[in-house]
Design a protein around this nucleic acid. Structure first.
Length: 288
DNA sequence: CTTGCGTCCTGCTCGC
DNA sequence: TGCGAGCAGGACGCAA
């Protein structure tokens, strides 16, 4: 569910709290959210797999994935899927969610109180992946991801879009092309760049690519600063909500007037995903 | 190899 | 008020 800005906002919260804390213990309430690095649901589980006994060195993000880096090159990768979220609570506080699948207890140096990290995911499209070594992490999980969407250079984006004849929207949602864009920001970026979502990626012109790369940088960065877009279940680990949804120009606005020209926004299904755009401002395949 | 479609899940909203 | 249909921020597996 969350896209790059939401995951980045979550990462910042987790990093400020969890860095240098040690994992005292962990428990798994639903085994099927634990995945191997290929994404398959995992059978057996050893406590060390969840980082028990190790210190958190940093919390990273790659695309939509969170990476809790522990001592000895071990990493826990968390994908939130459509409905996943992470919550931080003081030890002992009650949780009301029936979908709390993984729980970690962490403690800082000395006698500091324990903090609890909950992984909650009603639909269970998300999951917790376990990497036993840096090579596991890089070669099998993070490989195959394209460049970060908010910092990609126009020339790099151009080269990558040349490789596929799929629609530009489908290509932007493909994490191996660029990493971090989901359905909200794909529509927002295409609108800002004035590009029709159905235009084949390999026909996107250099001026269009420049506008797309600019829009990716500006929109994603702004959304990060606003704490992401809260549509339904996106919340930050402290319970706060993101404020970027009020800036959406097209997502969720099908049938409403375009903020730029006033014409009614179109809503279609493209690649199985709801797609909203302005046929006037994002005219058909303008190639430039 | 690439591409498009079905599937995995629960919860919420809307119309009857 | 209840009930079913439709929809949801993602990404994998599979068949053509």
């Amino acid at each position: 569910m969350p896209e790059l800005p939401e995951v980045e906002a979550i990462r910042r919260h987790l990093a400020s709290t969890l860095t240098n804390m040690s994992i005292d213990r962990a428990s798994v309430r639903r085994r099927d959210v634990i995945r191997d690095l290929g994404g398959r649901r995992r059978g057996r589980l050893h406590p060390a797999d969840l980082g028990v006994g190790r210190r958190v060195e940093m919390v990273d993000r790659r695309g939509k994935q969170l990476i809790v880096r522990l001592e000895d090159g071990i990493g826990i990768v968390i994908r939130l899927g459509m409905s996943g979220r992470l919550e931080l609570h003081p030890r002992g506080s009650r949780s009301t969610s029936p979908h709390r699948h993984v729980v970690w207890m962490l403690r800082g140096a000395g006698t500091s109180p324990e903090t609890r990290l909950d992984f909650i995911d009603p639909r269970r499209f998300g999951g917790v992946h376990l990497a036993q070594s840096p090579s596991d992490l890089e070669e099998r999980l993070l490989a195959g991801l394209g460049p970060e969407a908010h910092t990609i250079a126009p020339e790099t984006l151009y080269d990558r879009l040349r490789r596929t004849s799929r629609s530009i929207k489908t290509a932007m949602l493909d994490q191996s092309v660029i990493a971090g864009v989901g359905n909200i920001y794909a529509d927002e970026v295409l609108f800002a760049a004035g590009v029709h979502p159905n235009q084949p990626a390999n026909t996107i012109s250099r001026p269009q690519v420049k506008r797309l790369a600019d829009a990716l940088r500006v929109i994603l960065q702004k959304a990060i600063e606003q704490g992401g877009s809260t549509i339904q279940s996106h919340t930050l680990p402290d319970g706060g909500v993101g404020n970027f949804a009020s800036h959406h120009k097209v997502y969720g606005r099908g049938g409403l007037p375009c903020t730029r020209c006033g014409d009614s926004l179109d809503r279609v299904v493209l690649g199985g995903r709801s797609t909203t755009f302005c046929a006037t401002c994002q005219g058909v395949h303008p190639h430039g």
